[in-house]
Structure formats: C-alpha cells, structure tokens
Design a protein around this nucleic acid. Sequence first.
DNA 1: ACTCATATTGGCAGCGCTGCCAACCGAAAA
DNA 2: TTTTCGGTTGGCAGCGCTGCCAATATGAGT
Lengths: 339, 339
Amino acid sequence: MSGSKLTMEFKHQATVTLAEVAEAAGVGESTVSRVLRNHGSFSGKTRERVMAAVERLGYVPNRIAGTLASTGSRLVAFVIPSLSNIVFPDVLRGASTVLEENRYQAVFSVTDYDPGKEEALAAAMLAWRPAAVMLAGYEHTEGTAKMLRASGCRVVELLDLDGDALDIAVGFSNRAAGRESAAFLLRRGYRRIGYVGHDLNRDTRAGKRFSSFCETLDANGTPLVAHEILAGPSSVENGRLGLERLLARATDLDAVYFSNDDMALGGYFHCLAQGISIPSQLAIFGYNGLDIGRAIPQPLSTIRTPRVATGEIAAQLIVANAPPQAVDLGFELIEGATA
Amino acid sequence: MSGSKLTMEFKHQATVTLAEVAEAAGVGESTVSRVLRNHGSFSGKTRERVMAAVERLGYVPNRIAGTLASTGSRLVAFVIPSLSNIVFPDVLRGASTVLEENRYQAVFSVTDYDPGKEEALAAAMLAWRPAAVMLAGYEHTEGTAKMLRASGCRVVELLDLDGDALDIAVGFSNRAAGRESAAFLLRRGYRRIGYVGHDLNRDTRAGKRFSSFCETLDANGTPLVAHEILAGPSSVENGRLGLERLLARATDLDAVYFSNDDMALGGYFHCLAQGISIPSQLAIFGYNGLDIGRAIPQPLSTIRTPRVATGEIAAQLIVANAPPQAVDLGFELIEGATA
DNA sequence: ACTCATATTGGCAGCGCTGCCAACCGAAAA
DNA sequence: TTTTCGGTTGGCAGCGCTGCCAATATGAGT
C-alpha cells in the first residue's frame, strides 16, 4: 500500500505541465513555451518569473508532447548490426558528441547482421518519426529500402561507399581498402597469400574487402592460395583459431590478410605462441586500425578507418539538414611492423 | 525545385494517419487502434480489412502520438559514461536484446564521466518520459538524484553495489573485486605489489576497486609499493606506458594490479617487448575478463565481470516492473597464467 | 495628445493516438 | 415476441505542447 501511494506521489510530481507553470508564473502558456525555447520575444522580467516558476515546480518539459505538436523530431535512430564489433560503438561515439551538442537524441537498436531484423527494427524506429535513420552500408532488403524512401525522413548509410545511396552516405570504399591492402602486400614482395575471415554473408562490407583483395591478387597473377572462413562474429579467438587451421592446410604461406584487426591480433598471438617469426616467416595484415594494434610489440600493419569521424560527419550533415550526398572520408594504410 | 517537390511527396507519404486507415478500411479509428495493438475485441473480418488497408497505405503508427495519449512510454534511457570502455557497449548489448524482444526502445547519451554532464543529460532524458533511466554506479550529483527521485520513472544503477540505490541496482561489488584480487595475489605469494591505473576521480568504480585492493594489502602487512595513475581514459597504450613508468621508479616489484584488462594488456605487451618474463619476474592482474585476455599466449589473470548479463537483468526488471531491489550478479576470478 | 510601427502576450486549435463510454448486434433465454 | 447479455464498434475528449493570430502594450515621432 505504501508502494502504491509512493507511485501516486511520483506520478503527481512527474506531472507538472506547462499550463501549471504558466499559472504559477502568472503568464500565458505560449509565453512559457517561448521563454523555455528561447524563441520569439518576451521581456526580461517575464523570463525571470517563468524561470522562477520552473525552478520552484521542478518542471521538466515533455518532449513527447512537444515533438507531436511541432514538426521535426530531433531524434536520430541508429540501426546497427552489432555492439560487439567496436566499429559501431565508435560510430555512435562520434555521432553522439555532435548530436548532444545540438540537443538531438540518439536511439538505437541492434540487428545482429540480420537483414530481416533490420527491416523490422527500421520499421519500429520509423514509428518514432526520427529526423534521420542511420544504418550500416547499402545492403538492405527491398522492404527496408522502400519503407525508408517512403518515410520522408533522412537516411544515412554508413561505412560504405560501394553502391547507390538512398540519401546520404558517409564512409569510405571497402573495395578500395581491400585493393590497397593487396597492393601493399604485393609491393612488399609477398606472393603466397592467405585469408582468414568471419562470416562474409552477414558482414557484407568485409565481403567487399575480401573480393577486391582477391581480384587484385588475381590481376597480379598470384591468386589467393587459401582461405579460412569461420562461422560467427569476428574475434581475437577466432582469428587465432582461423590462422591455426589455415596453416595446417597451407604450410608455405608468406602472408595472411585478416578480415579485421581482431582476427589479425588472434593471428599475431598464434604466431607468438608458436614461435613463428613475424614478418620474416609470416606477414600479417589487418583492417580497422584499432589502438591496441599499436601497442603490441610489433605494431600491426593495417588500414585505419575513420570510424568516429564517420559518426561525427553523419550527425553534422543531419543537424545541418544537408542535401543528399556521398562523403568519402578515406582511410589510412598503416605500414606497421607485421607485414 | 524538384527537391522541394520531392520533400512534399515525402511528407505526404509519411503522413498516413490512423484516421486515414480507418476511413480506407471503412471502420472507426478505435477499431483500427485495437486491431493494431491486438488489444480489446474485434472480429476476424474486421481485422483483415484493417490489415489490408494498413498494407495498402503503408501505414506506420506514430509512437510519439501513441505515447502521449497513453500512459507508459516503452522508452528506456541509458546515461552512460563512455562508449570507448567496452563495458558499456556490453551492457547496452545485453539490455537491447531484452528490450527489443519486448518492444521497448533504447535511447542513450554519453557523459564522458562528467557528473555535471550526467545531470544535464539525465534531465534531457527525463524529457522523453522514459519508462526507466539506467545509469552507471551510485555517484551522482545532488541534483541528479533529486531529479530522478522526483521524476516518477524507474531508475536502475548499474555495475556497482557499494552504496545505496535510488531504486533498482544491478551489478556486483567493486570493493569485493578489489579485495579478492589482492587476496589472490597474496595467496600466490606476491608481496611487492604495484598498481597502474587511469583517472580514478572520474571512474569511481575503478577507484573503489583500488582502495579495497590497498586495504587488503595493508591488512596483510604488505602495503602497496608504488602506483602510477595516468590521466585520461584507460587504454592499452596507457597501460604499457604506465607499467614502464612504474618499473622505472620501483624496480623490485613482483606483481602489478591494473585498473582493468586494457591497461593490463598494455602491461603484458610491455613485458613481452622488454623480455620481462611473466609471471616469474613480474605477475600481471587485470579486471573485466575481456575475451582478448584469453587469446594472448598466456591467458590473462583477471576478474570476469557479468557485463552483458547486467544489461539483460536490468532490462528484464524494468520490463517486468519489478519492485526496488539490488541484484548481485557476482564476478569470477580467472586464474590465468600471468599471476 | 495622437498616430503608427514594434515589442509582448494570451487564446486556442490542432499534432495522431488511446481510453472511456455509449450504441449496436445478434443469439440464447424467457 | 420480448428481454438479456456478451461480443463489437464508433465517437470523442483529452495527452502536453507548439504555431498562428489577434490583442494589448510600449515608445518614438510629430
């Protein structure tokens, strides 16, 4: 019983409305609204009276009501494949900084790399009438694309530029990354190259890197010698396991390309544990440019991607209501010491 | 000009309302509402007619309006210190799974470990009238606590149990973690112990671990020999740097406790690079139980924390509208090979 | 003192949906 | 035939705020 009483008291507290503030301040509702949003004109003493009442009553504006009444929503919806893959927290981090500065609010949901789930979650997001929906890459179901197009809200596709954008795209070319990785290894003189990766049907961006990587090797007349694809998400452990399996099958590799740095670190540790010397016996090349790659005894050779910047720029474009466009942030090849 | 026309078309598309669906289906608004929420009673043929109209018009319910009209909001607000520290993405991951299953929506913002910012962001969150606000730990400003208490919405404090909860708390005791870490090292025979950590004023949970760790050493009559605190967030690079500095000052340490696994990995790599043999010359102990700690050549000795489970349980309690309580999920000491 | 432009202000109709309530519709019961 | 009752259904008043517009106040100019 004291529980329910408490609840009621809470409810009462929570329920201070604009109208009550207006009454307490002895002004009209619209005046309070103008003062709080600092929009329109009002006198200094009015402002003080209103602020005093707000303070006294502990008024917290109701954004739900505000959003319904006005037009734009200041909500930005992220539909991301994963939170385990550090890429996405990094993007969110970049975006949230900019969004918070501009009083936007981020909402998110996680698709687990499942296009069907992406469609369902995108629909759920649209129900909040966000200012923008941000998703990873270009590979969406027909339904998702149709829905987004029809929604009238801005759409930002992140971390990929190899395809046609629905509206805005911010990122870099994964195909170019795969190509440059291969070119680098070839330039360094490696010829018997293998690959260790995770599920490419789900992570289509990793798939694009892999296929361009292979094409580049083919064009050079030194095709990929062997590859090992592990089910499940990328992880250090899987990288280690993958390299172990790959080397069991292909003993004479001189370099291995990994789907990303997590996997590459696993490979690095495998070599460390097995006494395989890097890069003289085996070279290792990753993707992402994680900080940890610089802290291991031999800095990891990899490609550094602008993950945080991708989030920042995407958010800035939305805040500024920029026209449709594709922004190429590029990437940086880190020579490192492992290849 | 074609741009503005496009916008208008979009707007038109986006603007399908419940009333239009009702009209198209030849039924009343409330009937459509009942069918869509599968709540209340309606006949089978009515259901079909409504669903057909929804499909035909591409209707997406407006949750903003729905939330305003009804009472509870199905929004859960996360106010987290950081997205760089993997702890928080892990918690979000656990929570988002449960929330999505229950048609709740997660919103978040990042305080950057700043209590003042936390207060501002919590206020902004409250404006969305969420069903619950989830924050890290117990250390909030007076203002934050007061505001949350007055808000009438559920509050969940995560990842800490050493203090008094506002409402619900889910996590484990950081003090116990510090204590057990020290006890483990002592049990193993280490006596000249050092510490490498990051900014403890900001990360108060790391601070609690550190102080309990020291108390335990003191109680044993073998106080901490030296410590090195680095400004800025925890990172592998800082761990490496920290250990380097620590060893420069205290040459005869036999074990080092790190504020978390990131830092510990940095220390591990430093030893690897310097040829310091682990654990015979120097033992290393971390905190968090990251996967990568198991993949390095010598598995890291550490404490594994239930980060994902913390998010899951917290979300479940909110979904179930559980009464105020503190849930201790405990942690697991991993003996590893580095201490 | 009188006029007119400008600065302030309040009233009120929605935004799109939910919740309540009255109305309606057979079919079973009287 | 009339009454009864549960299953269905539509109408409509808000939820709390914003945007528009009319009303009032202020102040400078003559």
